[in-house]
Design a protein around this nucleic acid. Structure first.
Length: 677
DNA sequence: AAGTCCCACGTC
DNA sequence: ACGTGGGACTTC
């Protein structure tokens, strides 16, 4: 590979003298501006004005300047009006890679959103200092922060070799069943087996001269994966890039990606937009985790971004997880993804146990069945024991002691709860302290505790296991790892630390409570939470799943987790629920929603639920076949643009106050579309 | 979003 | 005939 300094990264344009036209995407959330605008390139800017650079352009009137990106430079343009000149080129670095632009455009189109909303996630703001440092290193030819240290491939152990080799050589797409074990890295750290698998795949991509993008849901997954990568790749071949970094760090990582050296790029959901050089592989860990769903409009899920990018760039794709999501199961059944499982069968020992009858003392105290208690006691002789609970805090809910009605915040009607046994009850929504609480139903002023949070469970278990060290891990108390010594680790689902050598036993306590959630995805979510906890157990350790029966319990006991996913998907097909079909929710004023609904009626393969009345207007859900997706999206986008363009009408709201009616809001592929319908 | 055009209404 | 205020309309 040629040295860094010899690479002509950004060659000056040979045609710089000609009068050319820049096609610019304006950085604006307005749907009516979500298209390209054409500007003349003044001679002074000709050298820098190339596709991908950030620019400033006049918009509508000379005084008003907008930010944007040059998407392409062309000789002539269809627009017949008079063109304005580019105002300025912000930086000569092409930070918006063409493939990222194409991806953003298509993702926005399929969700009736704005491309610039996606590009905002993909391209951090310019950081002059960071850029200067980077350019100086680039020009002086001193060893750049990202050099080209050779990569040694590491075999992907525990999986069939031909599947793994085929994956990278032919742009394959696989759904990988992760091995439910923890493994020790050469440096001594323990990580999930999956992290080692993804790291090994990354070495293979890099050795072939391609980059690998590795997307994980949260920081704890990220730290495991970074550790696993550090064990197999030189430090200058691994880059961390995600939206949680500070802007300078993000910009530095982005520039590293734009370099010529293939990298392993690790991050959370927004990493799928990294401008990776010679992209060879995208791997997604635990795609069912809701953190993979972008909360900002247009709400693109990592999985969808990956699928489109794979289509556009023909890279290899891996979806890895313990409990397969129904979406991945659908892709497997369509043969879009090839299922790959480990060469050896690893079946954790999971014992579903009924909830204990209340005459047992321990059950009354700590809601632990005798069998589980015995298991934990024996395991505590040898090492740490994990206890998974549903909620943090002491008591998640309070209720009136006399009328049993749930206690509500006097400020916002939110539920009251307690963080510790001694803390003042507080609202779970607004945080207001309920110092002088009175029941709104019967005016009594004493309440009782409902439910058990991690803190209360810890107290109870402390009593049941005197002398045992107790560690609480939840959203507030982040614990990444625990030593191999005996201790009880009480963790809320998703916050479980990794134990050196694995847990000697795992108790999954609040299954019933977790399943009580009103959601289309409860079953699959619970399976994922439980499976991810079970995967932290030591070989041979027992997991007790308390109070859960039926197909979920048998899926856990037999560790045939994909069976559950296929059954669930079959149900969704029957009911015409996602992911068997797609959905889009429309909310807004009655007229906008009704117009949108009627605009959809002519499309084959759609049906509309609602509209129903919601706060401030109407809400309707359109269900549609995947094949109808682009049509539905373009119809709804047209409605959104029409609503935004036709100036908002105002209606007098009773007492002469003018309130603007909400315009049409559209959300595609909401994971919980039916919640308040 | 916000500058600009345009039309309706008001005043001399 | 001239002024002005607010809404509609466009953005290369």
């Amino acid at each position: 590979m040629p040295g860094w300094a010899q690479q002509q990264l950004f060659p000056t344009d040979k045609q710089a003298g000609q009068a050319r036209i820049a096609r610019v995407l304006i950085d604006s959330p307005l749907p009516q501006l979500d298209r390209l605008f054409d500007y003349r390139i003044p001679p002074l800017l000709a050298a820098d004005a190339r596709a991908g650079v950030r620019v400033r352009v006049p918009l509508r009137s000379a005084g008003r300047i907008a930010d944007g990106f040059i998407v392409e430079v062309v000789e002539s343009v269809a627009y017949t009006g008079v063109l304005s000149d580019l105002e300025a080129v912000v930086s000569s670095l092409p930070v918006l890679a063409p493939e990222v632009w194409k991806l953003a455009r298509r993702l926005a189109d399929r969700s009736a959103g704005n491309a610039s909303d996606i590009i905002r996630l993909a391209v951090p703001k310019r950081q002059v200092r960071v850029e200067k440092v980077w350019l100086a290193q680039e020009r002086s030819g001193t060893p750049a922060p990202v050099g080209a240290t050779p990569v040694h491939t590491v075999p992907v152990s525990d999986y069939p070799e031909e599947a793994m080799v085929g994956l990278l050589s032919s742009g394959g797409r696989i759904a990988l069943d992760a091995v439910p074990r923890v493994v020790q890295l050469p440096g001594g750290e323990w990580v999930g087996h999956w992290a080692v698998t993804l790291a090994a795949l990354a070495t293979q991509a890099l050795a072939r001269g391609g980059s690998a993008i590795l997307a994980v849901p949260d920081y704890r997954d990220q730290s495991q994966l970074m550790a696993a990568l550090a064990a197999v790749l030189p430090p200058d071949r691994v880059v961390h890039l995600d939206a949680r970094q500070s802007n300078p760090d993000r910009y530095r990582s982005l520039l590293a990606c734009l370099g010529t050296t293939p990298l392993a790029i690790v991050g959370n959901r927004s990493v799928v937009y990294a401008p990776a050089r010679s992209l060879a592989l995208i791997a997604v860990w635990d795609d069912g985790d809701p953190l993979h769903c972008e909360p900002l409009s247009p709400y693109v899920h990592t999985r969808d971004a990956v699928l489109l990018r794979q289509e556009q760039q023909a890279c290899s794709v891996v979806f890895a997880g313990h409990a397969r999501s129904t979406e991945v199961e659908r892709l497997v059944e369509l043969r879009w993804l090839e299922p790959v499982r480990a060469t050896r069968v690893y079946t954790p020992k999971v014992i579903p146990t009924a909830q204990q009858s209340s005459d047992d003392k321990l059950a009354a105290v700590a809601r632990i069945p005798t069998a589980a208690w015995r298991e934990a006691k024996a395991a505590l002789e040898h090492g740490p024991v994990l206890v998974q609970v549903a909620r943090p805090g002491y008591a998640p809910r309070l209720a009136c002691d006399s009328c049993k009605q749930s206690a509500r915040c006097t400020v916002c009607e939110g539920p009251l709860g307690m963080k510790t046994s001694r803390s003042t009850p507080a609202c779970q929504w607004c945080g207001a302290l309920a110092t002088t609480w009175h029941c709104v139903h019967c005016n009594a002023s004493t309440f009782r505790l409902v439910g058990q949070g991690s803190v209360r469970t810890a107290e109870d278990l402390g009593r049941a296991f005197p002398g045992v060290r107790i560690i609480i891990a939840d959203g507030d108390r982040r614990v990444l790892t625990v030593p191999a010594s005996p201790a009880l680790i009480i963790a809320t689902r998703g916050a479980e630390p990794i134990a050196d050598g694995g847990y000697r036993a795992v108790l999954l306590l609040d299954g019933e409570r977790m399943l009580a959630r009103e959601s289309l995805r409860v079953g699959e979510d619970c399976l994922r939470w439980w499976a991810n906890a079970v995967a932290l157990a030591a070989p041979g350790a027992t997991t007790v799943l308390v109070g859960v029966g039926g197909p979920l319990a048998s899926a856990m006991a037999t560790w045939r987790l994909s069976n559950y996913a296929s059954g669930e998907l079959a149900d969704r097909r029957r009911l015409r629920f996602p992911p068997a079909i797609r959905v889009a929710t429309m909310t807004g004023s009655p007229s906008t929603v009704e117009k949108a609904v009627s605009a959809l009626t002519s499309i084959e393969g759609t049906d509309v639920l609602g509209p129903t009345e919601v706060e401030g207007g109407l809400r309707a859900i359109v269900r549609f076949d995947y094949a109808a997706g682009s049509q539905v999206a373009s119809v709804l986008k047209a409605e959104i643009v029409r609503n935004a363009t036709n100036r908002r009408k105002r209606i007098p709201a009773g007492e002469g106050r003018m309130t603007p009616l909400p315009t049409l809001k559209v959300r595609f592929d909401d994971t919980e579309p039916f919640v308040d319908v």
